[in-house]
C-alpha cells in the first residue's frame, strides 16, 4: 500500500521576488516538477518551508487562474519568514497545500461586493479581485476598503489602476498620515458608513486583525448587511495544516480545515471570548 505523507513538502523554485515595502515580500513560485498541481481557491493557504528553519502557513495572494505558479505575500517577522525573505530568484523552498476553506465567491455572484482589508490582510483578499476581474459582469458594485498603518504599508500599489479599470472602487485610510498623504486618516470602520451599498444584496470579505474584522463587521451590520454574508479570515499557530497538530483550535473549529475563512455568524460569539 502506497501511503502519501501529507506532511511532506514539495520543492518549488523562486521565479520572482518583489518587495512590497521594507518588510513585505511577494514571491512567485514554480513547482520543480510539472506534475505538481498549483491550483487553489481564493482564501486558501499553503505551508511554506524554509530549508532547515521551519514551516509557516501563508495565504495565496496570486491569481487562482494562473496555471503554472503560485504567489505568496509574506511579512518578514520571524525566523522562518526572514529566511524566506532572503531567498533570491532561482532558490528553492518547500511547499505543501493548498489548505483550508475559500472565500464564498460563488454565493456572492450577482451581489455587490465589499472587500475589507487591513494591512497585510490584503494578501489573501487579492485573489478575490483577480477572480472578480475575470468575470466582472457576474458581480454588482465592487468596493475595496483598505486600511494601513501608514501610506507605505499599502500593498500591490502597481495594480490599483488595473483594479479601478475593472470598475473596482478603492477607498483607503491610514492610521498615521505622512506629509504626502491626502486621503482619509483613521480606521477602516469610519469608511463603511460612507459606502454606497444596497445592504440586502451585499457580500463582504474581510481580512485584517481580529479587532478590525470584528468592528468592520459590526459597521456593515449597522448598514443592514446580513452577518451570514460577511466572511472573515482567521489566523492561529499552525504546525501541520491538516487537523493533526491541534495548535490552531478555535473553540470547536480547526482554523486549518474548518477555516481560515468563516462566515461571521458562525464565529461571532467565539470572537467575544478572550484568549479562546
Amino acid at each position: 500500500m502506497e501511503l502519501v505523507d501529507p506532511m511532506c513538502p514539495l520543492p518549488f523554485r523562486v521565479q520572482k521576488v518583489s518587495w512590497e515595502n521594507s518588510d513585505v515580500v511577494t514571491l512567485d513560485l514554480v513547482p520543480e516538477s510539472s506534475s505538481t498541481p498549483t491550483k487553489f481557491q481564493p482564501g486558501q493557504f499553503s505551508m511554506l518551508y524554509a530549508f532547515g528553519v521551519g514551516e509557516v502557513p501563508i495565504s495565496h495572494s496570486g491569481s487562482p487562474t494562473e496555471p503554472s505558479r503560485v504567489t505568496h505575500t509574506i511579512r518578514t517577522v520571524g525566523a522562518v519568514t526572514n529566511a524566506i525573505g532572503k531567498l533570491k530568484r532561482g532558490d528553492t523552498l518547500g511547499l505543501r497545500g493548498p489548505y483550508g476553506t475559500a472565500w464564498p465567491l460563488k454565493e456572492a455572484q450577482g451581489k455587490d461586493i465589499v472587500v475589507g482589508a487591513g494591512g497585510l490582510g490584503m494578501a489573501p483578499l487579492r485573489p478575490i479581485l483577480y477572480s472578480i476581474a475575470q468575470e466582472r459582469e457576474k458581480f454588482g458594485k465592487v468596493a475595496l476598503v483598505y486600511g494601513a498603518r501608514d501610506p507605505k504599508d499599502f500593498l500591490f500599489k502597481d495594480e490599483w489602476e488595473v483594479w479601478k479599470k475593472n470598475d473596482i472602487e478603492i477607498h483607503m485610510v491610514v492610521g498615521q498620515s505622512t506629509s504626502d498623504w491626502k486621503g482619509h486618516v483613521g480606521h477602516i470602520t469610519t469608511l463603511i458608513p460612507r459606502l454606497k451599498l444596497e445592504p440586502e444584496k451585499t457580500c463582504a470579505f474581510l481580512c485584517g486583525s481580529e479587532i478590525m474584522m470584528r468592528f468592520t463587521a459590526f459597521e456593515l451590520e449597522k448598514r443592514g448587511v446580513s452577518k451570514s454574508h460577511i466572511s472573515i479570515s482567521l489566523e492561529r499557530n499552525m504546525k501541520c495544516a491538516i487537523g493533526f497538530c491541534g495548535h490552531c483550535q478555535y473553540g470547536p473549529h480547526f482554523i486549518c480545515k474548518d477555516g481560515p475563512v468563516f462566515a461571521f455568524d458562525r464565529i461571532e460569539e467565539l470572537m467575544r471570548i478572550r484568549e479562546l
Binding site: 505523507d5 506532511m7 520543492p11 523554485r13 518551508y49 530549508f51 532561482g90 518547500g94
Partner: peptide, 16 residues
C-alpha cells in the same frame, strides 16, 4: 517526519 537535502539550488525531500 522527513529529511531534506540541498544540493546547490536543488531541494530534495526524502520521506521516512
Amino acid at each position: 517526519l522527513w529529511k531534506a537535502n540541498r544540493d546547490g539550488k536543488t531541494l530534495k525531500i526524502e520521506t521516512e
